[in-house]
Design a protein around this nucleic acid. Structure first.
Lengths: 386, 386
DNA sequence: TTGAAAGCGCTAACAA
DNA sequence: TTGTTAGCGCTTTCAA
């Protein structure tokens, strides 16, 4: 309640935010409101009650803060609190709608808790993935969601062990104690494979994604399950391709066509591969499904509009993303069920991170979450001709 | 060169990174190497030369840092340097491949300079966009690339004026002094419109994106240009829809079909709208291109495989993204032409941000960058039947 | 060639 | 009910 005649030499402020030069700091606010920084801090952080700050003071501080367009520096705050409010998300290719959707779910899911997403694109290279991990670690992310390239999990395990919560999605790993979420690829693969098999197909070419990745192996397994159930075995020479890309699908198809002219169906492990295959087939004048049946994974907005709508196993991508986010939040000891914006404690500025309750007690219980998929039968499968 | 018998009470370190509890700090490194923090800092930041630090010392420090898995806290560094190394990217929907591609280019483009991308998804809502802007500002982003929802530019202008470099892409604004990059929508629209018109179409329905957005207006203008050149005028009642979405395209098509049964062609302002339109057309049993011609914007991997491949004007999205990134970097006084990884100065840890040369001298010259588009003629256009 | 110390903006004991 | 102060981890003057 002293007369506020001790002004900082701050540049004359128009209303709105920082006008010139230095951004406005808490000290600026405090000075102008004639209180100490602690009082200002407390007033702005919804701790007025707790510290029994007079409503008058609180109001005053808030007003000044608003007038000055004050925004607490999250950097300073992070340093002090040891909480960056940052979540790292690393994917092999953010322009791929699959990963983009996952990134989206994470972004939306964590935003309510004051977290922001730091994005990394590994370009399908483990080496870059490693570099990004380091870069994000240096930026003090509090957790990492990574859709790995899918072959070398070591750097992620190390990281997780070192105390930074990591959860992996999609290209998860085998026998690794990292919380993992993925589609139920085995069941999914078996289901699509069966529509092929039930039509009588036995000579089935497989367009594989990255061979060493678990999804690729698991999908192959599902296919084998189906074959075995039908009483036959798939020859390994019917396997081609080694990436989840259109190019790989195209090349593999051509290769298979040459190696096995008797092939009657194609099992594509991802949509891009299927697109490549369709292109290759068209070039060779092979009609779908008359001369060749084909099944694949994942749906897309254009599916219905295609010349031959694909029969596919579709993953519930948003759900995958949400699950991953939930696991992440749980590992951060944030309660994902709490309603988001009902947080009326901290209203005006800065304060958004609810404090973590327990200091993340290494709850690194191995866990693999599987999300069910849906079979979508369309018209890319017919009985084999010969 | 003192005997290093004054150890910190740090937990016994296995090789690799932080083993237990506290992450390893510069002080830990310094102590263990038997030097002061200043020396450690300088050694690790490639300033050994500059400060004439003995090679022995430097080596020693580097070794300890490596052994301990030291990583400089970017948070502390940011606070001190007033450089966060963060770039904010805000888009209406990251799961849309268009925006995802842009985000990707930014991410790849700035990564080489040690920046990371903070992602925000505005869900096509200006209000959320505003909130995200605030959130990212608080996180001390050094610049913002936003693909705005597209109607209210004020908060962005204010922000930019306040000193935070903002560049907008795609849904740019009219008469606003914000660096903007967008496709050359007018020319593009005119070009696709002309393939319609040359076939004899005059009754052309328009599936509009967000009406008040500049891209929508500009594309309409391009269409009008073409019409005028052909000597006719488009009746405003042929305009329907108000969003860049599939739903909007669907609804608008139905609406137009009812209002103008004589319509012979559809001009869709975006791919989703086109998809919606094709769905609506199919429901009404209207064949493309026999009964109805259609053109749209943007290509996609499935385009060739569609029942009726669409004639489209395709934007060079990666180029759009790269341009936007370049503009951003220029405003940050980083030289985008410098080769990226050839930066051998700072090798081992932490140091990645090249310092900004000039302190961003408000070079807010109004500038609009236009990226050319390509016309892709396929088979969705035929001469009108009546 | 190296070190001591100030300080970036903030929060939280501890005092009063 | 409010203020003083230490300190988060780092860089950088200034001094030696």
């Amino acid at each position: 309640m002293k007369p506020p005649n001790h002004r900082t030499p701050d540049t004359p402020q128009g209303p709105g935010s920082a006008t010139l030069g230095h951004p406005v700091t808490l000290k600026n606010v405090a000075d102008r409101a004639g209180v100490s920084v602690s009082t200002a801090s407390r007033a702005l952080n919804g701790q007025a009650r707790k510290y029994r700050i007079s409503p008058t003071t609180e109001k005053a501080v808030r007003k000044v803060a608003a007038d000055l367009g004050f925004q607490a520096s999250q950097v300073a705050r992070s340093l002090r609190l040891k909480r960056s409010g940052l979540i790292g998300v690393i994917v092999p290719d953010i322009s791929n709608p699959f990963f983009a959707s996952i990134a989206r779910e994470v972004s939306l899911g964590v935003e309510a808790y004051g977290f922001s997403v730091l994005l990394g694109d590994s370009r399908e290279e483990t080496q870059i993935e490693q570099r990004l991990v380091e870069q994000l670690r240096a930026k003090q992310v509090e957790a990492l969601l990574v859709c790995p390239v899918g072959v070398v999990p070591d750097h992620l395990v190390t990281l997780d062990r070192s105390g930074l919560p990591v959860v992996v999605a999609d290209r998860v790993f085998d026998g690794i104690e990292l919380p993992s979420v993925t589609s139920d690829n085995r069941t999914a693969a078996r289901a699509v494979a069966e529509v092929l098999i039930e039509q009588g197909h036995r000579k089935i070419g497989v367009l594989s994604g990255v061979r060493d990745s678990l999804p690729a192996k698991t999908r192959l397994q599902g296919l084998n399950d189906a074959a075995q159930h039908a009483g036959f075995k798939l020859d390994p020479s019917y396997l081609a391709g080694n990436a989840f890309t259109e190019q790989s699908g195209y090349d593999a198809t051509l290769e298979l066509l040459d190696r096995h002219p008797e092939m009657t169906a194609i099992f594509a492990m991802c949509t891009p591969a299927a697109i490549g295959a369709i292109g290759a087939l068209a070039e060779r004048g092979i009609a779908i499904p008359r001369d060749m049946s084909i099944v694949a994974f994942d749906d897309h907005p254009f599916a219905e509009l295609m010349k031959t709508p694909l029969t596919v196993s579709v993953q519930d991508i948003p759900r995958l993303g949400r699950l991953a986010t939930a696991v992440l939040l749980k590992r951060l000891n944030v309660n994902p069920s709490a309603d988001s914006s009902a947080d009326s404690s901290a209203e005006s500025s800065g304060q958004e991170l609810p404090p973590l309750s327990t200091p993340s007690e290494l709850q690194s219980a191995s866990s693999l979450w599987k999300v069910p998929t849906t079979l979508l039968q369309r018209s890319s499968v017919a009985a084999p001709r010969h």
